[in-house]
Each structure stands twice: as structure tokens, then as C-alpha cells.
Computed example of a mutant assay.
Amino acid sequence: MKSHVVLLLILLLGSLTSASAQSEDTDCSQARLFTFSWQFSPACDMQVRGGTTQGAELELAEAPSDAWQALQNDGLEDFERDRLAILAMAGGYRVSFDFLETVGYTPGFEPDRPYQSWATEYVYVIEDRDDFISLQHIMVMQYVDESGNVSAPMVQKHWRQDWQYEPSSIRVFNGFDEFVSQPLVAEEMEGVWSQSVYQVDDSPRYAAVGRWQHDHNISSWLSSTTWRPLPRRESSVRQDYQVLVGTNRHTITPTGWVQEEENFKVALDAPGQLRESQPYLSKELGAARYERLADFDFTAGDEYWQATEQFWRDVRAVWQEYIDADEAFAFSETANGMPLFVSVFGLAGEAAEATTYDASASRAQIRALLADHITQQP
């Protein structure tokens, strides 16, 4: 259990980055820049930030997946094609994350350094109820040390995405730790899917609505504009803004899928209220590429999920109690000096090691834990 928590701290502090990322003591005159970057900036200014962790060699799938092939079938109803596109995101992948500030909106703007990271992870279908699909991401990471030795697999529960067809409302971020319920107009929701994204501890992150578009061999979903908290790649180094305001597009490819993001970095004066003067700082573009793996052993991820699936189901259930109870609540990641993800992963480790699982007792522990992190809004 302790090894899981240590790994989580490493991951969430942004130490896992592309194997090709430059170390801090690299001669920055020779540092690799983004191909699409600020070409007149000194190399040091655009040096990719992050750590130097290197993964084991991987074999990528070359043939189109069965999931992508199924999307090409003629005669599918729109609803079923939408479902197939969402389900096509399941499977095992090498993932690369790239983010770059592209536009500045304030006097004296200087672009931040680009960001890169990577992971190997499996996306599990944990619920499939016709008009609702839940996908859980589990990382299974192996590293290569300086001597070329490959580590044993290290497993970490990652983010979750829930897809709801024709939702009546979504829970959205309002800035300064506040989440509010946003009712949706029923007649405008025909054919619409919401995507709700959750953190590693199953706390809400952001939600948006959009329609899947299927045009010949392209299946893509573009979100409405949504507010989201700062990711740890930003909150660990930036304190000058409070919310990312943007869109994300999911596109299914023959051998995986891609999530593209267009985000504005925005300063607030209060929840839901832009700063009075020059609230928009910059825009960033991001791309997360999920490339399907041909031969990677995800057994350790399977075993972890089998051992903790009941516990995480109860975490989701308790969170849902709070989400359904009130129009608004505030969520603090840290309470009593302890981040929620550390505490909840400790409980997950205990559940995995227990001879029998007591759901009632577990939910009581989870409720007590969340009560320290959640404040109901008037």
C-alpha cells in the first residue's frame, strides 16, 4: 500500500515525463524544442520542463483495431455509433501528453516552458448501461534505470471519464474549489452526450456536453466550453490564475484515440466571476495521444482493479451522495494537513489486503473522510 502512495506522489508532482525530455543539467543550447513552439525564443526558455524518467521499450499496434473497424460499418444508428466510439477508448495504451502556451493576452507576456509527460495505462469499461458508460484509467508503469534494468510494474489508479446520453444536468467547476449543478434544457439535449471527468480520488474535475460527429472514417466529439481546476502540472508551478476555460475534442483513430485541448488560463476575483482587469492571461494547446499497444502485460493492473474494485465502487457511491444532495459544494483537496488522494489510497490499500470486504464499514469510513474535505454551500 505504501508503495502505491509513494508512486502516486511521484506521479502527481509531475516527475514522470517523456523519455526524451531534457534533464535540468542538460546543455540547453542543444535541448530539443517543440517542433511547434516559439522559434525566436532562446533554447533555454523553451526547454521542455519535467523529469527524465524513461520507460521500457514498447511495441505499438499497427493494424486497425476491431473497435475502429466496427465504427466503419454502414447502417448503424447514430446512438449505437456514438456508443461504439466511446467504448473504442477502452484498451491498453502508451499515452503522451503535450502542452504549449501559444498566445499571450497581457502586457509583458512571456510564454511558459512546454510540458511533456507519458504513461502506459489500461482503460477499463467499469459500467455500461446503454445510455451511460464509465471508463476507468489504470496506469501500469515500468521504468529503465541507468544500468538498463527494467523495474517491476507499478500500478496506479488514474482518472475516470463518465459518459451520459441526453443528461438533465451536469456538475461544473465554478472556481475557488466550488462545484455547482448546471441544469440543461431538455429540448437542446437531443443526441447529446455529457463527459464528466474525475480525479484519481474520484473527486469531480470538470464536465461538458457535446455531440459525436461521424463523417466517413472520422468519429469525433467536441465539448462545450467548460471550466476546470488547474491540473497539477500547472498548480505546482503557477499561482497567478484560478481556472482553465476551454474545450476538449476526442477523436477515434485506427490504432487508438486523441484528446485535443484548447484552454484559456483565466484569473478570477470570486467563484464564477472573472477578474475585473485583464482576466485572460494566455491560451494553451494540448494533445494526449493514446496509442494502442500490441504486446504489453497489464496483469498487474488487472489484479489491482480486481482487488480494489468494490472499494472504488463505494467511493463513487459516496461521492454521488454529495453530488446529488445540493446545488453547490466546495471541495478542498487537503484537510487536516493531508491530501485526499493520499488518504483514500490508504483505504484502498487496506481494502485490497483485507480477507473479506465490509462494504458498510467501508462506506462509513469514506463518508467520514470526505466530510473533512467537502463543505455544503448555502
Rank of each mutant, 00 (worst) to 15 (best):
F109V: 12
A364V: 15
V237W: 09
P254L: 04
D314W: 10
E57D: 15
V245Y: 10
L12I: 11
L87Q: 15
G256W: 01
R313L: 09
L9M: 11
G55F: 12
V266W: 02
A267L: 12
P339S: 14
F36K: 12
D131G: 00
A152I: 06
R211Q: 12
F331I: 04
V318E: 00
S18T: 06
N174G: 10
W159M: 09
W227H: 15
S220K: 09
H250S: 09
G104T: 04
I138F: 07
V318S: 00
N217Q: 14
Y280T: 08
D45M: 09
V200G: 08
S151M: 12
L370I: 10
R94H: 12
F99E: 15
T53K: 05
L60R: 02
A328V: 05
W68K: 08
F99I: 13
T375V: 03
H373D: 03
A330P: 11
D128L: 02
P114Q: 03
A359S: 15
F132Y: 15
T53G: 10
A207C: 07
G191T: 03
F264R: 11
G14E: 07
A85C: 05
D269A: 07
Q195A: 14
E327N: 06
M338D: 06
D202C: 11
D372K: 09
V5T: 14
